[in-house]
């Protein structure tokens, strides 16, 4: 019983960061129709920013998260302006190839800059974990969970309550009409990509201190983000949030009771099952096939 409770607690905490990763990716797809293969690299970028800011530069741990997110947004906006803005209206395969190219270049640039050696980030939390009855969890993970929740709620607020969010939603529903209504589609796209990138960087900056920072960390993160987004339906933010938690529970319980080796395969198996039975994702409102 204790073991089950511990698994559930681990999954809940992991789910928060998964949701954060998924939202960033689904947002970009929903509004821009771009499958963002650089998502995992922005995640790794966030983690490396965190390392550089906290370890050699000695910046405050909490400030560093904010700076890492800002840098992530900046890198995202650069990618959008440099690569994607010229491809507006191109088919989805073309943008995908460009994004794959960018992904390969970014990952190897990271490897070149930081070498393959894994780096570790110190955190300011007490090293004794938080203990509740038979359960225990590190303070760092508790912090990660609540910051992730805060960022998710912030994103919801931004999209549903602000002017920018309204313009995003309008673009999402009907790009041409939105443009006719005077919405600057270009700016919406840049802003969306920057926002999605900032969320990915935030996830990396949060998880960097929990695990270790390595150039290939983005691959696994991107793979999971894809699984989450398919679970929730491409472009569906609520779906991505729930999808993040579902994936975390499936992985943790699967690893705990079925086989720990297949932990990272769970997400992909889930994708294949979902597509067998509900090709539009678990929470799709409208048909997206074809």
């Amino acid at each position: 019983m204790d073991q089950l409770l511990q698994h559930l607690l681990n999954a809940t905490i992991l789910g928060g960061t998964y949701a954060l990763l998924g939202i960033g990716l689904t947002l970009i797809f929903g509004i821009m129709r771009v499958v963002n293969f650089t998502h995992g690299e922005l995640y790794a970028f966030g983690a490396y920013c965190m390392y550089a800011l906290v370890m050699p530069l000695g910046l405050n741990f909490f400030m560093a998260l904010v700076v890492a997110m800002a840098l992530g947004a900046l890198l995202g906006a650069t990618i959008e302006l440099l690569l994607l803005s010229r491809l507006r209206g191109a088919d989805i395969d073309t943008t995908m190839l460009v994004m794959i190219g960018a992904w390969i270049a970014l990952q190897n640039a990271e490897q070149l800059a930081w070498t393959g050696v894994a780096l570790s980030i110190n955190n300011p939390f007490p090293s004794e974990p938080l203990i509740v009855g038979p359960l225990s969890v590190s303070w760092n993970r508790v912090y990660v969970f609540f910051v992730a929740l805060l960022l998710i709620l912030g994103t919801y607020y931004l999209i549903n309550r602000t002017h920018l969010g309204k313009a995003m939603r309008a673009t999402f529903q009907d790009r041409d009409t939105a443009a006719l209504m005077g919405i600057r589609i270009d700016r919406i796209h840049t802003a969306t990509f920057a926002l999605g990138s900032a969320l990915a960087a935030a996830a990396g900056a949060l998880l960097g201190p929990v695990f270790v920072v390595a150039p290939t960390m983005g691959d696994l993160a991107a793979a999971k983000a894809f699984a989450i987004v398919i679970l929730g339906g491409l472009g569906n933010i609520k779906g991505a949030t729930l999808g993040g938690f579902i994936l975390a529970f499936v992985e943790e319980l699967g690893a705990g009771y079925i086989s720990s080796g297949y932990r990272d395969a769970m997400g992909f198996l889930l994708i294949i099952l979902i597509l067998l039975f509900r090709p539009t994702g678990l929470f799709a409102q409208k048909e997206r096939v074809g």
Partner: peptide, 15 residues
């Protein structure tokens, strides 16, 4: 067991 590339061992450690 664990994959040589894995980074999260919470499930194994709980077991």
């Amino acid at each position: 067991t664990m994959d040589p590339k894995a980074t999260d061992f919470s499930a194994q450690l709980a077991k």
